[in-house]
């Protein structure tokens, strides 16, 4: 009897429907906002980690020019041997440049990989060099770290 009278009673029905619509809107909009927020923060996390990990790997790089030797072939030519030692914990990839008075005499842009705790040899055939020429050896990693060494041709 009470239910039938309630069904017949149409007063306050609009407020209930309004409330249901409002709840539905809240659920839909809330879910959308939550999904967007979740996706955006996941993206930001990944992005941030990529940036920081680049910096971390860059911090971990340790390398140096361990030895340089020059073998004369002719009066003004010879081969320059460079040993680069990676004493850091991670593998590195390097480009090597040979400079004299700022101009490039030779370069190795292969991005050769030097595994951690190992030494790699680079050989350059140089022309138009003579005794007492001062060469600057620039070793640059693909992560942007640079190491310089100078060498005077004996």
């Amino acid at each position: 009897m009470l239910g039938r009278s309630m069904l017949r009673d149409k007063r306050a029905l609009s407020s209930v429907i309004g409330e249901i619509i409002l709840c539905t809107c809240v659920l839909v909009v809330g879910t959308a906002v939550w999904a967007f927020s979740y996706g955006y923060t996941s993206y930001e996390m990944t992005n941030y980690w990529q940036k920081v990990s680049v910096n971390i790997y860059s911090l971990k790089e340790r390398f140096m020019v361990e030895n340089v030797a020059f073998n004369s072939i002719g009066i003004s030519s010879g081969s320059l041997h460079i040993w680069v030692y990676n004493y850091g914990e991670i593998d590195i990839q390097v480009n090597v440049y040979i400079l004299r008075n700022g101009s490039i005499l030779g370069q190795d842009l292969s991005g050769a990989t030097i595994t951690r705790y190992s030494v790699a040899e680079f050989t350059f055939n140089l022309d138009q060099v003579s005794t007492s020429n001062e060469l600057v050896i620039k070793v640059e990693t693909l992560r942007g770290n640079v190491n310089y060494e100078s060498y005077t041709i004996p």
Binding site: E19, C23, G30, W34, T41, M45, W49
Partner: peptide, 27 residues
Amino acid sequence: KSGVGSVLGMIFLVAIAFTTIVPLFLY
């Protein structure tokens, strides 16, 4: 029955905060 939407909205707000913003800060 009025205010149910507000409660739901608040629940969503808290859920978003705890599932996205807080983990982001922690990360």
